[in-house]
Design a protein around this nucleic acid. Structure first.
Lengths: 339, 339
DNA sequence: GTGAAAGCGCTAACAA
DNA sequence: TTGTTAGCGCTTTCAC
């Protein structure tokens, strides 16, 4: 019968009410509530105010405060895909936690990559006087920057736009690729295959560079016959497996966890065991895949949570962040049982 | 060198500025901007205002508007886990889309299940004069309601609290269980196993009820020997497989996709093919698992997006929603290749 | 048709 | 130590 909208909620208690009950002026109330350093309030006036606040259940109106101070505590987050990729939510999570830590609130908008929606979202955030905007993509790439972003402080998260002049926070693909390869080397492997993706992206070039860097550093000769290309999905990994096996590699670094999943299937199809016959490491740390594969997949994590948090810090000017070079966030290894 | 916080952004253009440029009063500007029905504005005054708005790049200050109107366009969403479960983000997504559709903005807070954080989050939302709060859980269950939720209109999403008097929006577990079983029956199966979870929950009782309902409706005798219990993970499914096979079932309905994933492994270990030797259907529609298993897993989707959206509708009083009985959201089948 | 003025809840000089 | 007052940007009656 009834809906949520029936709320007969008590009319808002204002500072004026508190002042009246406490028998002081509205300014005094403001002072004790905000613990103003300058203003010295008498012990008993302070107590009367506090009592009145408690008695009335007074809650400050954050909006009115913002209006009079001219500076809000909102941070906007516009995302192209909150949900398409399972871990995209982590960016929100990280941003939210960090914003919260500094007394800010997150305003989120999902645009589904639609430019009109995007502009509306940004406009709405601007109208709400956000302190700044975090603009994020669901995968690391270069993006065209919506012009409106320049009307406030903005930070790009998991994407970048060199000529925009906007600071960016992205995963350190090179370090990630190197880490993955290093783990394999540390396990004693010397013939290490790399299944790269077919799609051009910072991930493709970065991880490859990291792979090479690791091999060189370990004094292992680069062998292009060990570098493969596959579509970045389970199917791609599956199809690449025969060549990987044929290459004589004893370990394989897969461009991402889904590819690794396919490699698992391919290996199993040939009766090969992981990691005994072939060590496997993935990339992304997509929980549902990595942790639940048998054996559990060792991989390198994409630091979505950290990027969201770092984005907020850069926005607030707490992190030094060069505009020219994006802030690189470390991709940590997540060791499980496939190496 | 520079940070995002260096913003030398143009000082805000206000209505007063627009009025001055347009040569009209501030009230007139307000009227044309909001297209006030009552107020009739001269054709040319209207044009002058519009031109001034465009020329100055005026943006209304939503906060000031809220303050003077007394009613905001914010909806709060407090979630215990935005990210732990990959699809939890869908609740945000659905809520955001629906809120947006009605001119509302989402304020999100993640509490990680911490009660103090939760109270702070709710307090903060109240202070921001939210129109109401959506309180969500990352899996369907009964929850203790934070008292503060009663200070505004609130709706529970993917959780419920019978005595709280708060409207709730939850997945229709019974219908889901029935749908899963119906699909198996439709494919010609009569001996259908059900691997239920060991953990007590609405999902456990609901899906089982649905399973029974479907069998009865199809005139199939219930056989308790076909109902198993397993921990709701990959491992549980794997371990239950031998018994499932031994039971003589030709199809199995798994409590969730992770269990199904384990069953896949178990079946494969015995050299059994899916769906030829055993049809499998899961529950949850966890993309990364379901779509990428081989063969792709048929399953029943948990309608997170829809629940988020429905929550907003209930909150806004657009959906009739009984407080006594939670609003049930349909769990649709997602057919792939495992049946 | 258009404008003056009061007020939304709060902050911040400045007085007292 | 406390109160007065003038806004913050906008909406909204009510005159003109």
């Amino acid at each position: 019968m009834s809906t949520a909208g029936n709320g007969a909620h008590p009319p808002n208690v204002t500072m004026r009410d508190v002042a009246k009950v406490a028998g002081v002026s509205i300014a005094t109330v403001s002072h004790v509530i905000n613990d103003k350093p300058g203003a010295r309030i008498g012990e008993d006036a302070r107590r009367r105010v506090q009592d009145a606040v408690a008695a009335l259940g007074y809650r400050p109106n954050a909006l009115a405060k913002t209006l009079s101070q001219g500076t809000s505590r909102f941070i906007g987050l516009v995302a192209d895909q909150i949900a398409t990729t399972p871990f995209a939510g982590q960016i929100i999570h990280g941003a939210q936690d960090e914003a919260w830590r500094h007394g800010f609130v997150l305003l989120v908008a999902n645009t589904d990559g639609n430019v009109d929606v995007e502009n509306d979202a940004i406009a709405m955030m601007l109208e709400h006087q956000v302190r700044g905007i975090l603009y994020s993509s669901w995968y690391h790439r270069e993006i065209p920057v919506p012009a409106a972003l320049h009307q406030t402080d903005s930070v790009l998260v998991d994407c970048f736009a060199p000529d925009s002049g906007l600071p960016a926070v992205v995963p350190d693909e090179v370090q990630g690729g190197r880490t993955a390869t290093d783990e394999l080397i540390a396990a004693g492997h010397r013939r290490i295959a790399f299944v790269n993706t077919t799609t051009p992206s910072p991930a493709r070039t970065g991880r490859l560079a990291g792979y090479r860097e690791a091999l060189s550093a370990a004094g292992i000769d680069l062998d292009d016959a060990l570098v493969f290309r596959a579509s970045p999905e389970q199917e791609g990994g599956y199809r690449a497996t025969p060549q990987i096996i044929a290459s004589g590699a004893t370990a394989v670094f897969c461009h991402n966890d889904r590819v690794a999943m396919g490699v698992y299937d391919g290996l199993r199809g040939q009766g090969l065991r992981i990691p005994e016959d072939m060590a496997v490491i993935g990339f992304d740390n997509q929980d549902v895949i990595a942790a639940h594969l048998r054996p559990a997949l060792s991989t390198v994590a994409l630091p979505h949570y950290e990027m969201g948090a770092a984005g907020v810090r850069v926005l607030l000017g707490l992190d030094e962040a060069g505009v020219a070079n994006p802030t690189l966030v470390r991709c940590p290894p997540v060791l499980r049982a496939s190496i």
